[in-house]
């Protein structure tokens, strides 16, 4: 059966086929360049001198000014390490809270029968729509009144309730969680929390990995809430620090600005290229469901 269906393309490999392939690859390579070029310009300009950038802002040949730019950049009151650490704390904490508790909530919806289960899920579907921005004023006033401004925790705890993640995990779980295994574990006398932590969680790993990456990225990139809630320079996250690169104290030295941008991005590049396997694999594994 499968043989007949795979015979077809072989016979179809005419000029049209190769033309199609060529178009496909040219287009894909064009997209790849489009995705990479701004970063390439950024990194190269980080090594060029101010006058080089002023005369020709685009170049594929790195300059020799990296050290000078570094010195200029370092002379500004811009502490990359602090920002990076704060961002790591917030993003890791928020990702853990969001993924662990969302999976738990989804588990409650999928694995148990309870009276308000359907209304609760409908409720989650509804609040999925409420974006944090529109409630930010109340959020700020509330955080201010309980003294939580300038606390990184204020950006972590709210992640426990992540309706979008719950929604995604429920969709995944509904297809991929075999109730029979849970039942047999129950018969073996396992408690419900053990069932969740030791049986359900490991089975959800692929979906959790995907969600973790998305949660991490969105938390890492979040500018709006930190901008509102954090005023202490020691607590600034990366995006706030980056946003200050636009200011006039840095404007004079474009090489240093590019270097600053590069520094904020480099760790992300490294983490991303290490994790990208898991993203692709996570997506592929996600496909086994339903």
């Amino acid at each position: 059966m499968s043989k007949t269906s795979y015979d077809e393309p072989k016979s179809a490999k005419g000029p049209a086929y190769y033309g199609y392939k060529a178009f496909q690859y040219i287009f894909l390579i064009f997209l790849a360049i489009m995705s990479l070029l701004p970063f390439v310009i950024m990194i190269i300009n980080a090594t060029r001198s101010r006058s080089q950038i002023e005369s020709h802002a685009i170049s594929l040949i790195p300059g020799k000014n990296l050290l000078v730019n570094w010195k200029v950049f370092n002379g500004k009151s811009f502490n990359v390490t602090t920002g990076f650490l704060n961002s790591v704390i917030v993003s890791t904490g928020a990702t853990f809270c969001s993924v662990y508790f969302s999976t738990m909530t989804a588990f409650a919806i999928v694995a148990y029968d309870w009276k308000f289960k359907k209304p609760f899920f409908t409720f989650i579907m509804c609040v999925l729509m409420i974006p944090p921005q529109v409630t930010s004023i109340g959020m700020y006033q509330f955080m201010y009144s309980i003294g939580m401004t300038n606390k990184l925790l204020a950006l972590i705890i709210p992640a426990v309730a992540a309706p979008a993640t719950v929604f995604f995990m429920r969709q995944y779980m509904a297809g991929a969680l075999p109730m029979e295994i849970l039942q047999s574990a129950r018969i073996d006398g396992a408690g419900e929390f053990r069932i969740y932590n030791q049986i359900a969680l490991p089975m959800m790993k692929p979906a959790m990995a995907t969600q973790a990456i998305f949660a991490f990225v969105s938390s890492w990139n979040n500018l709006f809430l930190p901008l509102i809630l954090l005023t202490d320079k020691k607590k600034f996250t990366m995006p706030i620090m980056v946003s200050q690169l636009n200011g006039d104290i840095y404007k004079t030295e474009y090489g240093a600005v590019y270097l600053g941008l590069t520094l904020t991005v480099l760790p992300l590049f490294v983490i991303y290229f290490l994790l990208s396997k898991y993203i692709i694999a996570g997506v592929a594994l996600g496909g086994v469901k339903e």
């Binding site: 738990m104 409650a108 919806i109 694995a111 148990y112 309870w114 426990v160 309730a161 419900e192």
Partner: peptide, 13 residues
Amino acid sequence: NAKYGYLFIIPFV
């Protein structure tokens, strides 16, 4: 089981 359903959604709620 219903009890655990409610229990597990407590943090979220």
